[in-house]
Design a protein around this nucleic acid. Structure first.
Lengths: 357, 357
DNA sequence: CTGAAAGCGCTAACAA
DNA sequence: TTGTTAGCGCTTTCAG
């Protein structure tokens, strides 16, 4: 790390920011008229309005938000709580959220948990402090801290990608179980008989749904779910590598592996391939999420395609509805279809002659 | 007198949030003492302090931020302006920023430009409205709107990943030119003589630096920079695909292609491979950024490794320093080394017998 | 249609 | 050490 010297000389303009009084004075009206010109122009005469607007233009006035928030009791800000901001899956969801929120005049405060429970308290406080008008939870559960739940603040909350059991918030998500069943059925139809599952973090509800849907469909197809190999993961890339090592060390490798996230599926795939295992010849791999890179890895990844942008948009829309209408919108379920690509195939024993490997 | 007209209210009353007055009344002190207990406990007697804390505990009081911000003239919020929140490169940078900011008690307001200039105005207003104490710019230029620059608001700004020409903000970035020279020198040392470059968005300063460093080093090595093939990109995945199609259609394909981002390098690589071009045998590919997936694609990607997390952390630290000390910190340059992986090799003509292709 | 005036909840002089 | 007293800048009755 090198440091490039820079001049320290800089004048911080102590210039007092222009307030509504400055504008009012310049336009020769009261502050009330200025306020109305901005909030309800129709209540102001053509004459006064144009004088005010001119004064605003000249002074470069921008209403102070803290004052406005204090008085109006709303902040036009939404808190978006995300488990891990570096997770590839959330990027596009966030973009959808942002699109919709910005279009409706709301700003976004990011609440990154970084997978750490202790980070929650801060955002609970933020909500109780009236810093935001509502919250969008992608975190799988209601943040808590200082002995209270975020939901107890009583402001609108919507959940994305997960439903909170017993909670009353509207939610937007895909059906993890249903999608996972598709995966299982597809794998079975290919002729696989031994299965592995790379899981999400312990207790994660999405992981639970995916795991259960997978196991249930396999059971329905006559396989003993107890014989599925489970490897503990956390949705992130590193844990896919870890799972791959366990797979490689396993005396009896399954021919089909389902990972609860694309990140894990991709790193799993790469790691076993480097060890000489062929995908899909030796092992078929299926992911979940449909992140951008899933179609640029080799082989391209068979996966469940979550409509990430739409999930974000819809979640934001639901929250905005709650914010503006006052009543709680209905939850939404989005389709997440299985996209078949090149990481899956019939097991080698069926497809080709056996060769030393 | 009877201060509490609504005494029989239940603990959870979202109707009227508890204020500093409630706490003061319950603790039998003035609001000033409550305020001091929170801001400067040492100025309050043991006795009063514990009564206040108890009252806070019982009532679940959380100071109203709008009021505090208005009075104290600071928001403990930082605006982070990012060109595109869905860009894989920024995810980890954001995480670094978040880590540092949260550790110092600041919150993050995300300003996603979505690559759209017209989105800037909103964030300029945010700054002028006093919504944030400072701004972190990853956007390559100073946001403008309504006829003014964000910088004119006079609050601390630091830039990340780019230096704004003529601007005086401290910045943290890697040396694009220097890193790009490494790429060129490496490619030349491998024996390549024909080169292609997949660019970033028009006018982007990082692209400029990378392009110039690349071309300059090639010129130094005796190659005519005018013969480099340039394909227009925008850092995103799709443009790598587009560039690949142009590469494939080219009558005289270069044997080495340098892409200004990993996202483009990865999609470029995949697309040409699907058309039967081998990487690195037929064409070597180098990326820039060192995103997580660059080591999980096939072949693994040779790239410039930006210290993404540290870039974010450092940028945040610089801004915090400006925020707290009042003077402007020095800019920082971080090393971004070339990581050689499997997407690069000597050109086929040198390495192997020539075959029809 | 417009202005005066009363705060929103909090902090910071200034007194006591 | 504590309380009193002004506002921070804005919106919003309530009169006019």
């Amino acid at each position: 790390m090198s440091v490039s010297a820079k001049k320290d000389k800089r004048r911080r303009s102590p210039r007092r920011p222009v307030t509504i009084h400055d504008v009012a004075a310049r336009a020769g009206v009261s502050t009330a008229t200025v306020s109305r010109t901005l909030a309800a122009p129709s209540l102001v005469s053509e004459e006064a309005r144009s004088r005010v607007l001119e004064a605003i233009r000249i002074t470069g006035y921008t209403p102070n938000m803290a004052a406005r928030n204090l008085r109006a009791r709303r902040s036009m800000m939404v808190l978006v709580v995300v488990p891990n901001i570096a997770n590839a899956f959330f990027a596009e969801v966030l973009r959808g959220i942002d699109d919709e929120l910005v279009a409706h005049g709301y700003g976004i405060i990011i609440g990154n948990l970084d997978n750490l429970t202790e980070r929650e308290a801060r955002y609970v406080d933020l909500v109780f402090a009236g810093q935001v008008d509502g919250a969008l939870l992608l975190s799988g559960h209601v943040p808590a801290g200082n002995g209270r739940l975020m939901s107890e603040a009583g402001l609108p909350i919507a959940t994305i990608c997960m439903e909170i059991p017993g909670a009353l918030f509207p939610s937007v998500m895909v059906d993890d179980q249903k999608s996972s069943r598709q995966v299982a059925e597809y794998l079975v139809s290919l002729g696989h008989r031994t299965f592995g599952y790379v899981s999400g973090p312990k207790g994660n509800r999405n992981d639970l749904g995916r795991r259960e849907g997978f196991a249930a469909a396999l059971a329905d197809a006559g396989f003993d779910p107890a014989r599925i190999s489970y490897w503990q993961g956390d949705f992130m890339v590193e844990s896919g590598v870890q799972a791959a090592h366990e797979f490689l060390a396993s005396p009896r490798r399954p021919t089909a592996v389902y990972a609860a996230s694309d990140s894990m599926a991709i790193s799993f795939m790469k790691t076993v391939m480097e060890a000489g295992v062929r995908v899909p010849d030796d092992v078929s791999v299926v992911g979940f999420d449909g992140i951008e890179f899933s179609e640029f890895v080799t082989p391209t990844l068979t996966t469940i395609q979550q409509p990430r942008n739409e999930i974000g948009r819809t979640g934001a829309r639901i929250l905005i509805e709650a914010l503006t209408s006052g009543n709680w919108p209905q939850s939404v379920r989005l389709e997440a279809p299985l996209i078949i690509r090149n990481s899956t195939a019939p097991p080698r024993a069926l497809g080709k002659a056996r060769r030393a490997g």
